[in-house]
């Protein structure tokens, strides 16, 4: 008898990763809709505190797999351990957040458990009549939305797009049960060796953490204006720059600056899109921003359908004037 909503509560160091708090938030909501417990799976090395944190963020029961071999994410080891936890916990619903690792893990885990998966969901609800998970996801780069149900198998799995679900707020008074999991993964048997991790050079605010993002697209026609016009303005406001996939594919800016379906998902307070037409692929990455400002010379650009504030004009003139006025206003 399957019961409950299980989440992969991903860790960052010894603590819950931001995406895990988002999974706690949506997981708790779905568990309450079903009237069933929220189960968290914490996997890593030295992650005992994260289990307590998961309880504070809404979990009723936490399975903890803590072992040296789980120090670094590997598809094979994490899939084995999470598969084992899912078979033990027998949840109705299993959610994995779309981080670098969750994106890789989710599909493999679904096939391990021989169950259906809805990928990259942005809306999850429980149907009051059928009690089935209704998982809604953008398709065709966001041109359409599909609602997916999993009727034949359990758990009903979904991977969840980052920053689309509100994070749970901690309550340190909450009580929950912690269950230690035996880890039988042998490091020598893993088919992949991690040679090294290379951090991209970056200075200042991380794109995904920035409160203000000023992005440029194909209309910038080269790398220069990213650094001569957009970046000074972004920096003066404590923000950073982003780019559309077109600008990254042209090689104008590094791939780490790409906002969109296959790039970063951002939800800043203010997102200023300069010379970006507003393809669904791009809006998938910035559509959850609090305020979207579009600056484009084309009054018919699709981005104005998604923007809160629009300026029809040349960013080369608009942005420096905007920056100057901000400096004056903010002293």
């Amino acid at each position: 008898m399957t019961q409950g909503v299980m989440i992969f509560a991903e860790t960052s160091g010894a603590a819950l990763a931001p995406i895990a708090k988002e999974m706690c938030g949506v997981g708790r909501r779905l568990a309450d809709a079903l009237g069933e417990p929220l189960i968290a799976a914490v996997v890593g090395c030295g992650v005992g505190d994260a289990a307590q944190e998961a309880i504070a963020h809404g979990a009723d029961r936490v399975y903890v797999a803590d072992a040296d071999v789980l120090q670094t994410y590997q598809t094979a080891s994490y899939c084995t351990v999470l598969g084992q936890i899912a078979e033990q916990a027998e949840p109705e619903v299993l959610l994995v957040g779309m981080s670098d690792n969750g994106r890789d893990l989710g599909p493999r885990l679904a096939f391990r458990l021989r169950t259906g998966l809805a990928s990259d969901c942005v809306d999850l609800t429980i149907d009051a009549g059928t009690r089935l998970l209704e998982a809604t996801r953008p398709v065709s780069g966001g041109n359409a939305m599909a609602t997916v149900v999993i009727e034949k198998t359990r758990p009903q799995m979904a991977t969840v797009r980052a920053k689309t679900m509100p994070a749970a707020e901690p309550d340190t008074g909450r009580q929950g049960e912690i269950i230690a999991v035996d880890v039988s993964v042998d490091a020598a048997s893993l088919p992949v060796t991690v040679v090294e991790r290379v951090k991209a050079e970056s200075e200042g605010v991380r794109l995904e953490d920035a409160d203000i993002v000023i992005s440029g697209g194909r209309g910038l026609k080269g790398p220069d204006d990213f650094y001569a016009i957009l970046e000074p303005c972004a920096k003066s406001l404590g923000g950073t720059i982003g780019a559309s996939r077109a600008a990254v594919d042209e090689g104008w800016v590094p791939t780490q600056l790409q906002v969109g379906l296959t790039g970063k998902i951002v939800s800043p307070k203010l997102y200023v899109a300069c010379a970006i037409s507003g393809a669904a692929q791009h809006m998938a990455g910035c559509g959850y921003s609090k305020t979207i400002v579009a600056v484009n010379r084309d009054p018919d650009a699709p981005i104005y359908q998604r923007a809160n504030i629009g300026i029809v004009g040349d960013y080369k003139k608009v942005i420096p004037a905007f920056q100057a006025k901000c400096a004056e206003l903010l002293g």
Partner: peptide, 30 residues
């Protein structure tokens, strides 16, 4: 198939974009 699409639709956006007025791009920026 283990999944079934129960609904497929094109999302609509309200498009209530507020346009900033100004005689010149510089004025709009300010």
């Amino acid at each position: 198939a283990l999944t079934r699409v129960s609904k497929l639709y094109v999302p609509s956006f309200d498009g209530d974009c507020e346009f900033i007025a100004g005689e010149t791009p510089e004025e709009m920026g300010a």
